[in-house]
Every structure is written in structure tokens, then in C-alpha cells.
Write a protein that binds this DNA or RNA. Structure first.
Lengths: 107, 107
DNA sequence: CTCATTCATAGCTCACCAGCTATACGCCAA
DNA sequence: TTGGCGTATAGCTGGTGAGCTATGAATGAG
């Protein structure tokens, strides 16, 4: 398999989309109109980005009358953090191995 | 400004490129030829991806004779982790606020 | 019912980029 | 120097996707 992280990375790679996600994280639930007001792009584009974020599991939507409220999905970034920590841990293991080697050379 | 995270996200969004970075993290320093052998794409493509990773500060290169050795750059993922933790912290603050609200309602 | 409002979808265009092949560049060996 | 090897660059092509406008669908107001 290509990693499950694939969709998360690809979804967050677009600046406009990531900015929308950031706003939802910082300011909580927002309607499409509210997001569009400061997104710098047209409403259909915002809707498209929100659909992409939803597909990636990064946001959830709640319908109320004519409006759709979007909010950030808690824990959605966990896989990303886990992956980054895993990558970093490999470096640390290498440094540990180097340390061991140096210790053995000291003896 | 568009965030500094922009280049990191964009660079890691491509599966082939991210796979190359992962290998460098897991297995340490590798030559272009060694990376190409298992990358599933041609050597020029691998070189191009490595150049992109270098531009993003994710890898470093070391020239030795005809070969170029690439390795993952320690700490390169820190901004990404910081960003994710920041986003997550907003959720937690909201939960704290909700807790406070519920406490006040109890009184 | 009729109209306005809010959002989603359709359909298009344009720019970007991942992939390729061909080739240039740099370095070692003979 | 000549040739072969490892890597980088040039130049092209196809596919993907972000943006737009126009329009459809659903709901609330009057």
C-alpha cells in the first residue's frame, strides 16, 4: 500500500485548503459563507476544499437549515504526528548506535 | 505570508518523494543509484526528487568521487510536528472552555 | 406559492509537475 | 587521453487539480 498518510499530506499541501483547516482549528465551527468571506477564493472553491478535507477525515459537517457548519475533526492529525515521530526516532536510534560504537572504541 | 510549512507539506505530498525520504530516515545515508534501485522510477526522476527534498531542507548531500550520498536532515520535521501540535492544542482549549462552562452551569 | 439565500455540482481552462528519454558533466581507471 | 560509470540537467508530454462562472437543489421568509 501507499501509506495512509498519503491523503492527509496531499490534502494539507494546498495553502488555501490548509488555511481553511487552520481557521476551523483556531476559531471552531464555521459556516461556508463565513469561511468564504476571508478565504480569498470563490464560494464553490471553498465548498470543494471542504469536501476534500472531509474526504481526508480532517473536518466534519453539520447541516442546519440552509447552512452547513464545518468543524475540525479531533485527532485527525494524529497519524501525521505519529509518522513524523517515527521518522525522527530512526535518527535517534542511529545516534544511540553511534554512541554505543564510541563507547566500545573507548574501551 | 504563506506559512513556512508550505514547502514541507508540498514536498512530502508526493508518494514517490516521501518514500525516498522515508528510506533515508529508516536506512540512513544512500547513494542515488541505491535509491533508484528500489524507487520504481528512473534515475533522473530520483535526482529531481532529491533536489526537491534538499530545497525543502529535508535532506543533505555529500559528494564523494562520482557518487553523491544523501541523508535525512535531523530536525527537519520539527516545524511540521509543532504545527500539528498547535492545531491540536486549539481543540484542547475548546474542551477546557466547555468544561468551564459546564462547571459554571453546575453551580 | 414565490422569491431570496445558502450551499453543492457541473463544466471549463490554465498552470504545474511527475514522469520519460536524451544528453551533458564530472570523476576514476587504464 | 579515452572510455565507462554515476549523477545532474534539458526538454518534452500527459495527467491532475485549483480556480473560475453558471446553474441546480434545498430551505426559510413573506
Amino acid at each position: 500500500m501507499t501509506n495512509a498518510h498519503d491523503e492527509i499530506f496531499r490534502t494539507l499541501a494546498d495553502p488555501t485548503r490548509r488555511a481553511i483547516f487552520e481557521r476551523l482549528c483556531r476559531e471552531g465551527e464555521k459556516t461556508v459563507a463565513a469561511l468564504t468571506a476571508k478565504a480569498g477564493v470563490s464560494q464553490p472553491v471553498v465548498s470543494k476544499h471542504l469536501a476534500a478535507l472531509k474526504r481526508a477525515g480532517l473536518v466534519r459537517d453539520r447541516h442546519q437549515g440552509r447552512q452547513t457548519h464545518y468543524s475540525a475533526e479531533f485527532g485527525a492529525l494524529a497519524p501525521l504526528v505519529d509518522w513524523a515521530n517515527e521518522m525522527t526516532s530512526f535518527w535517534e536510534k542511529k545516534f544511540d548506535a553511534l554512541e554505543d560504537l564510541l563507547k566500545r572504541m573507548d574501551q
